Simulated scan of single mutants.
Amino acid sequence: MGNLRSYLYIEGPAQDHCFDPPSVNYSIVVATATEDRFLVTYSCIRGYHLEGKRELFCNKTSLEWDSPVPTCLLGHCPNPVLVNGQLNSSKLEPVSEKEVVSFKCDNDYILKGSNWSQCQQNHTWTPPLPICIPGQCEPPTKPDHGHFKTRDFKSGSNVSFHCDNGYQLIGSQSLQCMEGEWSDEPPICQAKREAPVETKEELCAFQERNNICESIQTLMQCQNENGKTLEELKYSLEIKKLQLEKIKAFMSTEIK
């Protein structure tokens, strides 16, 4: 079952402030002391793997270790786990060095990563252990004042979005389900802005034409239809007259 003792190697000045490093069964400990802190590094012996932080620091002022003590557990690498899937190994626990495992996901799940991995000398799995993700996406959010169309929500499927009359689409019109996630955020439907409508006063504004008499006659008729008094019409014409005189004076100056 291995040696229960921990072997300690101290490098640097002898430490005289921190307590002895915590003992971990089936491990080798390398300790380094400096003037202000004490560092210990744990390595598990062959056939065991480390659970927890590999390096611990002890501050000589507080005399406390910065993390909980790790442990060395049976098995050269951590036992492989595949949620929503199955794995095939040449042997049962514990895991030994160079052991190879293969992976397969359950129905309706997709394997993300390699379908095999090997336990390495440094107690890690290479390639990294895969995971099983859902094979289809959750239904996307239906936009207010709109809807979407699709055959299904399986990986690779597309969904298109459409807005009701009077609304326009803001965002991506089409999304694709990729490994359980949609390619983009669902769009929204925003009300269209209507073109401004001219008021009766704007329609009755003085429209200058080649025949000024015709323009005045049209303006008088429009003002009369809108209930304008003769005095109000006279005032409007006086204002327009001043504007025309300013334009005429400016043009005369430019010609000179």
Rank of each mutant, 00 (worst) to 15 (best):
F206A: 01
E194N: 14
T61A: 05
I110E: 04
H145C: 07
R54Y: 05
K91V: 01
E185T: 13
S96E: 15
Y48M: 04
L169M: 14
K60Q: 14
C204Y: 07
S114L: 04
M1Q: 07
V159W: 06
S62T: 15
K248Q: 09
L175W: 01
S43P: 00
V100Q: 12
K234T: 12
V83K: 02
P78S: 14
S236R: 12
L74T: 12
D108N: 13
P139N: 11
P139A: 09
D36C: 01
C72H: 06
K53T: 15
A195W: 10
A249D: 15
K246G: 13
P78I: 02
N25R: 06
D164G: 00
N88Y: 15
N3E: 13
D152S: 15
L50I: 12
T150M: 05
T141S: 11
V29F: 01
C105I: 07
S102R: 14
I216A: 15
Q118D: 00
S23W: 08
G75C: 07
K53Y: 07
K53D: 12
I110T: 07
E201V: 08
D66L: 02
S155M: 06
L169R: 13
V101Q: 09
T150V: 05
I10Y: 09
I45S: 08
Y26S: 08
N107L: 04
Q136K: 06
K60H: 07
K200Q: 12
D106G: 02
P22Q: 07
C119F: 05
V29E: 03
P196N: 10
T253M: 11
L8V: 14
R151Q: 13
C119M: 08
K192S: 09
P134T: 06
S174C: 08
S172P: 06
K246R: 11
S160E: 07
V95P: 05
K91A: 15
A14D: 09
N158Q: 11
E97W: 02
C163R: 03
H162F: 15
F148A: 06
M251A: 15
T218N: 08
E254T: 12
N211P: 08
F38D: 06
H49P: 05
E181W: 00
L92R: 03
S43M: 03
V29N: 08
W125K: 03
Q136W: 04
S6K: 00
C137Q: 11
I10H: 12
K228A: 15
S89V: 05
S117N: 01
S183I: 04
P140M: 07
S215P: 03
P139S: 09
